[in-house]
Nucleic acid binder design. Structure first.
Lengths: 161, 161
DNA sequence: TCATCTATTCTGAGTAATTCATAATAAATC
DNA sequence: GATTTATTATGAATTACTCAGAATAGATGA
């Protein structure tokens, strides 16, 4: 038998390209986030413990932070929620949060590319060289809309924004 | 002398319209946030204590939360920072954060109105009725760009997004 | 294949930001 | 001015996350 170092994983190569060692903790975290996009650190701990029963919360935080700076994970911050992570990193997409149930959906960039990088500065503001534009939509998903329509059959106001 | 209830403040009417009582704590918090937009709760505590020396941190949190749901304040969440508050609520503007120094600038909606409310859903996503779109730009302000150019004279990469 | 080096993880504690339950206080109304 | 109850204060607790130092284990080279 040859060296049974670590299970071959599609993520191993990405880790090595990022100059990171291939560890079972990192592979498990990456697999968990891939399986459940928009997971919180806590979600990841639960998922990973099915495989690595003794992994600590702190280690998951360290791994998540490191994979984020390495570019293998993207960290997203949605209102009134702990940070979430996803493996979909190298495309241009944003997120929509349902204010009813908290579910998060992926949203492709609404307007192509340029407008995200050409903001209109408010009077009195200095200007910046913009590098990233993160959009968080808030709305009501179809399920929650159905549910609320049954109770109070009024259409929700669309807040012009 | 007539009843010296509370100092006349331009905010008193707004509070009453929102169905809220006019208290010196609320007036002081509103004044502080108006004076320093994008203040954190901690900033507000410091500012308000110049006027109300004994106000507690908890009370400031309660007041900020209540004024936010009342629509008198807007709460903004920027990456790696506690929540911030501003009095500019009924217009359409977003925020740009300098990754160097953390300063926050107001940004008017980049593309008018419609695109903010007509996201392109990613394949596999359910759809939502969008009500709000919050955009957080990240970039480098002119001061920080000058400062970094002096050290390492390379132009920062513009991450297409 | 083994020894070494150091990145990575673990252990245990600590912190920042915020929330909660309950008691005291003070706007608003009568 | 008395009453009602929204609001604030008090004190403790919680959530999300970070940090320092010790132990462990990938990766590299002999």
């Amino acid at each position: 038998m040859t060296e049974a170092t670590l299970p071959a994983s599609p993520w191993a190569g990405s880790l090595r390209s990022a100059g990171r060692r291939v560890t079972k903790q990192r592979l498990a975290v990456l697999a968990a986030v891939e399986r459940s996009p928009h997971s919180t650190a806590d979600d990841v701990v639960s998922a990973v413990r099915a495989e690595l029963a003794d992994i600590t919360v702190q280690s998951v935080y360290v791994v998540l932070a490191d994979l984020t700076v390495s570019g293998l994970l993207r960290r997203i911050e949605t209102p009134n929620s702990p940070a979430r992570y996803e493996t979909r990193v190298n495309d241009n997409h944003h997120h929509a949060v349902c204010t009813g149930c908290g579910r998060i959906e992926d949203v492709d960039c609404a307007v192509g590319h340029a407008p995200c990088l050409t903001p209109a500065w408010s009077p009195g503001s200095g200007q910046m060289t913009i590098q990233i534009a993160d959009v968080v939509y808030q709305g009501v998903c179809n399920d929650c809309r159905e549910a609320s329509r049954e109770e109070s059959p009024e259409l929700p106001e669309l807040e012009k924004h």
